Computed example of a mutant assay.
Amino acid sequence: MNRVALVTGASSGIGKAIALRLLEEGWKVALNGFNSLEAGRQVAAGHGQAIYLDADVSSATEAKRLVDLTVEHFGRLDAVVNNAGIARQIDHSDLDAVDDEFWDLVMAVNLKGPWNVARAARAHLLRSQGQIINNASVAGITASGSSIPYAVSKAGVLHLTRLLAKALGPDIRVNAVAPGYIDTPLTHDWTAVRDFVAEKAPARRLGQPEDVAEVVHGLLSMSYVTGTVIPVAGGLQLLSGT
């Protein structure tokens, strides 16, 4: 196997789990993070088929540099997993708590980031007949999420996925995963959300990063699936108003 994947936001949490799963399956992986050089290098350490590259995907220039360095190192690119994202808990009713700086940052990282990386990777993925997997959220499907800007950004990621699937097919497949609550270092202290998911979600347990990695790995092997969104939420998306 000589397949190469670029996973953004891979220094911890879901992205780390995805990168490690792909390495276990024989992929060569470029792990990306931003201002997380030590953590990212620790994840890549011990894996001869992995490198860590620090870059801000909200910048088109940085996204292109990231893709170019990946291809320069490994010689090709077969898959992009757009996982990088940010979130902060802000009650949806507290509109004044969302300042312009936070709104713009969320949109830049969560929505513009996948666009930047997809555009930078397009030529390489055309050559490999590769694919893109975007990490969205159940918050983009239902009226839920850690904040309104976060939910709006993830709804945008879902539609971006559909649009890119049409625009880049048949040569490049584009899909998305939509996690619900996943127990990561970022979300571990969200006690009220954790309790709700454990008690109300049909699966009756908290989601783990490995749950998302499993679905991403599955999508990478599905040659006749594009433009789809797979919730990874233990059925949380079935609960109205969650």
Rank of each mutant, 00 (worst) to 15 (best):
Q129T: 13
A118P: 10
A155C: 03
L95G: 13
A84K: 06
D96E: 15
G130Y: 09
R162H: 14
V71S: 07
D68K: 13
A60H: 09
G40Y: 01
I141N: 01
S153P: 00
D54S: 11
H47I: 04
K64G: 11
Y150G: 01
A44C: 06
N83D: 14
H47M: 01
N134H: 05
T142I: 07
A45G: 09
N134E: 02
G130W: 11
G140V: 03
I132R: 02
Y52F: 15
M107D: 06
R119F: 11
L126C: 12
L105H: 15
S128Q: 13
V98L: 10
I90V: 14
W103Y: 14
R122W: 13
W103S: 08
D96C: 13
Y150R: 04
A136Y: 04
R127N: 13
I148R: 06
Q49C: 08
R88Y: 10
L111R: 09
V109K: 11
A118Y: 10
V106K: 11
I86S: 07
W115L: 15
L95M: 14
F74H: 02
L95N: 12
Q129P: 08
A155E: 03
L95A: 15
A60Y: 02
R122S: 09
A108D: 13
K154P: 00
D78G: 12
T70H: 10
E72I: 06
S128V: 09
L53Y: 02
A121E: 07
G48C: 03
I141Q: 08
V157T: 02
